[in-house]
């Protein structure tokens, strides 16, 4: 399956957003997931099934002025 992840095309076998976060080796505590331009709360990551051509952004807050 091919998705657009953080602006780049990526092949993934992840079925859900939870799988994808684990596959990417990211700390879920500070992570913000935007799925097709909608923010999905962590409690719902397991319920979102990834499809071909989905656009997913994995974000976090960082220092900034």
């Amino acid at each position: 399956m091919r998705i657009n992840l953080n602006g780049s095309p990526v092949e993934t076998t992840s079925r859900s957003l939870s799988d994808l976060v684990a596959e990417q080796g990211l700390n879920p505590l500070s992570l913000i997931v935007e799925y097709n331009y909608e923010v999905v709360k962590q409690a719902s990551w397991g319920e979102i099934h990834i499809k071909d051509n989905d656009t997913i952004e994995l974000l976090n807050f960082v220092g900034g002025g």
């Binding site: 602006g7 952004e57 974000l59 960082v62 002025g65």
Partner: peptide
């Protein structure tokens, strides 16, 4: 203020908040 960025898997992912 805080900023929002794409995660960098190679960087410290500590939560600034």
């Amino acid at each position: 203020t805080v900023a929002l960025r794409r995660v960098d898997p190679t960087a410290d992912q500590g939560n600034i908040l």
